[in-house]
Design a binder for these strands. Structure first.
Lengths: 142, 142
DNA sequence: TGGAATTTAATTGTACACAATCTAATTTTA
DNA sequence: TAAAATTAGATTGTGTACAATTAAATTCCA
């Protein structure tokens, strides 16, 4: 019986934690004129240089309704370029620009700073990482 | 070195998990014409009947910029009533209406359903609940 | 006591998030 | 191969989130 409320409470904790995380990124990303979701897109591009909107959506678990306007904003800032694919005209490839690559340097210390800001303990890393990724993975289809 | 990326990855997991949670509530709340944040407000009201916007904001960690329009939508649906306090005219008290209390019955099985939908294991409850609440608590000030 | 500081909501503006729908391109298959 | 089904993004509309500002009420305190 008491169990029932637990799921609700745990879900609320996840919801609150996500917003806490975003709020800790904000002061780090603000100076780079990036939001957290925009930063996530840049992280993917810094790894791959070119990715399709579809791939981006799969990696970040976001749909085109979210990504299309977000990518347009990144393009306005000259950090990326949206290029419709020649091979498959339905697909749009996102290219990292020189300015976008440049930004990687300025963002280099963010992982360390966010780690410090959130103050995760060793134990929290080791426990939460696999457990939460397990939850995400078992719902991977959607 | 490898540690640095971990914080970024763990934070992304939290962000993704929060959206996963919301997506699992949606089919349960849709029939009640509630969003997840609206449901959270109703949960507080089902416990207390009357709460101030300030208290609500503290409980849910949301500010008036989020709550004011959300509460207006709940009022439009006749689930709550917004009443400016007589004792302190700055404060607005949220009252549960009869329809709002009625809705509690229809929402009674949501905790069980969300538990089933998310499929948390016993171990996940026992580990995640205290660990995540600890993280939230140590950043409680903001 | 009366002005300064604080508190509480509301407002404004920007940016997600996602359901639902649409269009165009590609693939399937009858 | 031509119609049907699928796929990739874009669009539309609703609803959060939150920073920054504003306005009104209350509290502080010199």
């Amino acid at each position: 019986m008491k169990q029932l409320k637990l799921s609700n409470q745990l879900c609320f904790s996840f919801y609150a934690l996500s917003r806490l995380v975003t709020s800790h990124y904000q002061p780090l990303l603000g100076p780079l004129d990036l939001t957290y979701p925009q930063y996530l897109v840049m992280l993917v591009l810094w790894e791959h240089d070119i990715v399709s909107v579809k791939t981006l959506g799969q990696q970040l678990m976001l749909d085109s309704g979210t990504l299309t306007p977000l990518l347009k904003r990144l393009e306005t800032k000259k950090l990326i370029k949206r290029v419709r694919s020649k091979e498959d005209e339905r697909s749009v490839n996102i290219h990292l620009t020189a300015a976008g690559r440049q930004l990687q340097q300025e963002a280099a210390d963010i992982p360390e700073k966010i780690s410090c800001s959130m103050g995760f303990t060793e134990k929290e890393y080791d426990t939460l990482k696999p457990m939460i990724n397990n939850i995400l993975k078992r719902h991977a289809d959607e």
